[in-house]
Each structure stands twice: as C-alpha cells, then as structure tokens.
Amino acid sequence: MDKNKETRPNMKIPPIVSLQEWEAARQKLLIKEKELTHARDSMAAERRRMPWLAVEKEYEFHGPKGKKSLLDLFDGRRQLIVYRAFFEPGVFGWPDHACRGCSLGADQVGHLAHLNARDTTLVYASRAPQADIARLKKRMGWAMPWYTITDSFDADFGVDEWHGTNVFFHHNDRIFRTYFINNRGDEAMGSTWSYLDATPLGRQEKWEDSPEGYPQTPPYKWWNWHDEYAASPDPKWAKVLDQALEELNLDK
C-alpha cells in the first residue's frame, strides 16, 4: 500500500494515447527542442564575440598551499571559471554546510579533467578559512579547487551578496573578464558543456561559429576517459570516429 497516496495532490494527467500518437507528439515537440538547441549555440557564438574587460587590480586568495594570485588560479591554462559559493559565518548551515543552493550546484559539477583538456580551469571561492573548506569538501565528496577570498574580489565582480560565475582569460600576460553568469543562469552550470559554452573559446570544435583563429578540433575526437587524457589517442578509437564523422558529415 502506498503510504503517501493520501497526501498527494489530485493530479490532472495528460491524455493517454497510442504509440503512434505519442510519437507524433514527440516529433512535434522535437522541432522546438532543436530550435532551442540552435538558439543556445547562437548565444554561445555571440558570447565568444563579447568585448573583454581588463582586470587591473591584484587579488589574493588563500589555498591549501598558501597564498595565490588570480593568475595562479588559472593553473597554467588560458581560461578560468570562478564560482563564488557562500560558505562562511552568517550563511545558513555554517559551519557544517555551505549554502544549500551553492551545494546543490557543487553536487552537479562534472569531472574536471574534461575542462582541463580544453585549456580551462574551474575553481570555487568563498570567504571561509581553508580548514573549513577542506572539511566541507571531504564531507561532501567534492574535488574542485576551492579558495578563500581575502580582499575585494567578490565585491568587484558582483558576487559579494549573491552567488555567480565569472569567466576570465589570460592573454599576453594580462587577465581579462570575459563573461558573468548569475541568478537562474547558474542553474545550468555543472556540465562540461555548460562551462565551455560560457568561455571565450567555447567547446573548441569545428562546427562552432567562432572568430577567426580560435582553436578548433573535430567534434568527439578530443573526448576521452577522464583518467586517460595524458595518454596518446587510441588509433582504433580515431578510426571509429573518422568513419562515424564521415557518415554524419560532422567533420566538414
């Protein structure tokens, strides 16, 4: 017997139809879904053409190994994504938990090796001391680098009172702010694709509409198991992909 049946609302469910009717309805909706996908691709292409804002100030963070500059957070890569998570005194849940919304987002972050393979680093930043951050990460099973904000970084980049995702690029010994996502825009963050779509270089695949000179490789070919990016590409995998791409016409 369903113990929750009596507490559930009386739902007005959709019509029950045949397989043919169901498939026709799905195909009708699929047209709109593809339009949404193409609109999202177009938005990402426009984002890659956004003007950049030079970061003129020096910022200092604390990490597990001591002081770090904003440049240090790039970890040798060109792109940096910084999510400001609320974990500090005064936040509901302290000291056992970070903000519930920020924690829900952290639970969705994919394996960072895939971002790293596209010259991109993701980090979290809060005002909590490193000892508390280390304890929280261990409890929750989170692996992303997580730094302590020590100065006006959060106020300068619009994340002192609310969460948000800032994107930076390192070019010719300078750092630039390239994009900013907050409010409900952060709901989509977590997957490798959503993070790459927010960066100036994008997914770096040939099908993308990117400015001239931007790095691009064939789709699928750079994908790998997260523990084998350092290994040489498997020639058998490359052969399978070449055949598939030729059939799908995705590599042209």
Results as ranks from 00 to 15, higher is better:
Gln27Met: 15
Leu104Pro: 01
Tyr220Met: 11
Ala98Met: 01
His62Pro: 00
Gly110Ala: 07
Lys236Leu: 14
Ser126Phe: 04
Met11Ala: 14
Glu88Pro: 00
Ala155Val: 13
Leu70Thr: 00
Lys239Gly: 03
Asn172Val: 09
Asp151Thr: 06
Ala143Arg: 11
Lys252Glu: 06
Gly185Asn: 06
Asp151His: 09
Leu71Thr: 08
Tyr83Cys: 01
His226Thr: 15
Ala125Thr: 05
Thr150Ala: 01
Lys239Gln: 10
Leu19Tyr: 15
Gly141Tyr: 09
Thr192Ser: 09
Lys34Cys: 08
Thr165Cys: 14
Glu161Asp: 13
Pro64Ile: 05
Lys138Tyr: 09
Arg118Ser: 02
Gly101Trp: 08
Ala131Gly: 02
His171Tyr: 15
Arg203Ile: 01
Ser191Cys: 06
Phe153Ile: 07
Phe153Met: 07
Pro64Thr: 12
Tyr124Thr: 06
Ser18Ile: 02
Leu241Phe: 09
Arg84Leu: 01
His226Glu: 12
Phe86Tyr: 07
Ser152Lys: 09
Ser42Phe: 02
Glu21Gln: 11
Glu58Val: 02
Asn10Val: 15
Lys138Ser: 10
Leu196Gln: 03
Glu56Ala: 13
Val82Thr: 07
Cys102Phe: 00
Lys28Cys: 04
Arg177Lys: 15
Glu228Met: 13
Arg40Cys: 11
His111Ser: 08
Gly110Thr: 12
Arg203His: 11
